[in-house]
């Protein structure tokens, strides 16, 4: 694209940004507006977890999160479809190897903590899964071509585990007469923990496998 066009486009978009800013400012300042905050806050005690963001993600709007797990899976499937992985890096020297050998367990431990803490403070399955994925990335950078992942069959099962557990819990609740993804209040905490655990493992495996970048 030529420089003149780029400049013209920039000016037009700057104008757009100003208009949007003005609109947003108007919407935010004129009236504090009805928000879902109070409604959400009132229902958090019944959601099975005490962190409001987690209760939105895994209870009030759990369906969004289910589809979001499917998006992560779709990206991995798309990457697998593109062909075999590129070869990894050469094995690392002793210094790097020993550093990797204690960072990876720490990351896994931190992932587990993130998962548990998500119930009452910021954290949760995606953050924990990201840490697991990071452990895989470090392993691969350290020379393990498979990034610490199991064989193909196992990888496939683990990658679908999060979405599968989520969907099956939803359907089981529907079959039990509660409705799709409608957790009974007493069970909510444990069902959410179950879903989050499966999701953490799936996201960790998916991210590491996506980093490896090709069919296992």
């Amino acid at each position: 694209m030529s420089r003149d066009w780029s400049l013209l486009l920039g000016m037009l978009l700057a104008l757009l940004a100003c208009v949007l800013l003005w609109v947003l400012h108007g919407a935010l300042m004129d009236q504090p507006g009805p928000r879902l905050a109070d409604l959400a806050a009132a229902n958090v005690p019944y959601s099975g977890v005490s962190n409001p963001v987690t209760s939105v993600l895994l209870n009030f709007r759990a369906y969004d999160t289910l589809l979001e797990l499917a998006v992560v899976l779709a990206a991995l499937l798309g990457i697998w479809a593109l062909g075999p992985a590129v070869p990894g890096f050469q094995p690392s020297g002793p210094v790097l190897a020993s550093m990797v050998s204690w960072i990876v367990p720490l990351l896994i431990l931190a992932g587990g903590y993130m998962l548990w803490v998500g119930g009452h403070a910021p954290g949760g399955a995606f953050q924990a899964g990201a840490l697991l994925g990071a452990a895989g990335v470090i392993l691969r950078l350290g020379g393990d071509p498979r990034a610490g992942l199991p064989d193909e069959t196992m990888q496939r099962w683990l990658a679908v585990a999060g979405t599968a557990v989520f969907t099956l819990v939803g359907l089981a609740l529907a079959a039990a007469g509660e409705g799709f993804l409608t957790y009974p209040t007493d069970w909510a905490k444990w069902l959410i923990l179950l879903i989050e655990t499966a999701a953490t493992i799936a996201i960790g495996v998916t991210l590491a496998a996506a980093y490896v970048g090709g069919r296992p």
Binding site: L36, A37, A41, P52, V53, D64
Partner: peptide
């Protein structure tokens, strides 16, 4: 007032996507 958790959750979903 405490912040509205709904947009926070939407952002988290959006980031993962």
């Amino acid at each position: 007032a405490p912040p509205d958790p709904v947009p926070h959750a939407l952002v988290l979903t959006g980031i993962v996507v």
